[in-house]
């Protein structure tokens, strides 16, 4: 039986289980509806053919969907034990084209033993496309029981 995740049980260097997501146009559309971000750079393939906002003739996924999937790595790991995300900082490096398949991961970088209820860890986050290129990097702070 797996050991229950607690602040005490975590060590710097621990690697979190990865998340993988294929980014079809339907996945982008569903996110557009969920976030209410209908910007045509994500949603309108015809418009993207000529406007090429990122220099690409195809839609790209929302930056905040990339952030959401990076957060999913954290919430999959820590929310079942009552963890709370305090802060997240993400730099979006490369646009993610429709049709990509991305992997999202994290590693424990720091432990902050502040006191009961306040103890938190800092995670280094990354997102990578199917060609092994990083599309986003970041950090997250999360309190753990």
């Amino acid at each position: 039986m797996a050991k229950k995740l607690t602040f005490e049980s975590v060590n710097c260097g621990d690697v979190l289980p990865e998340v993988r997501q294929h980014i079809s146009q339907e996945v982008i559309w569903e996110h557009a509806v969920a976030s209410l971000d209908y910007n045509p750079v994500h949603t309108d393939p015809e418009w993207c053919r000529t406007a090429q906002v990122f220099g690409l003739p195809v839609p790209v996924m929302h930056g905040n969907q990339t952030m959401s999937l990076m957060a999913k790595v954290v919430t999959n790991w820590a929310y079942p034990v009552g963890g709370k995300l305090k802060r997240m900082e993400v730099k979006l490096i490369k646009p993610v084209q429709v049709g990509s398949t991305c992997t999202y991961g994290a590693v424990v970088a720091e432990k902050h033993p502040i006191g009961k209820g306040e103890n938190f860890v800092v995670l280094d986050l990354w997102a990578m496309n199917q060609d092994g290129e990083k599309v986003a990097v970041g950090t997250a702070e999360i309190t753990l029981p």
Binding site: N39, N64, L85, K86, M88
Partner: peptide, 19 residues
Amino acid sequence: WIRTPGARNPGQIFEWHDP
């Protein structure tokens, strides 16, 4: 401005203070 066609997102910082 978050809705403007042509807008790009280079990265964000969020802090959650209360659920």
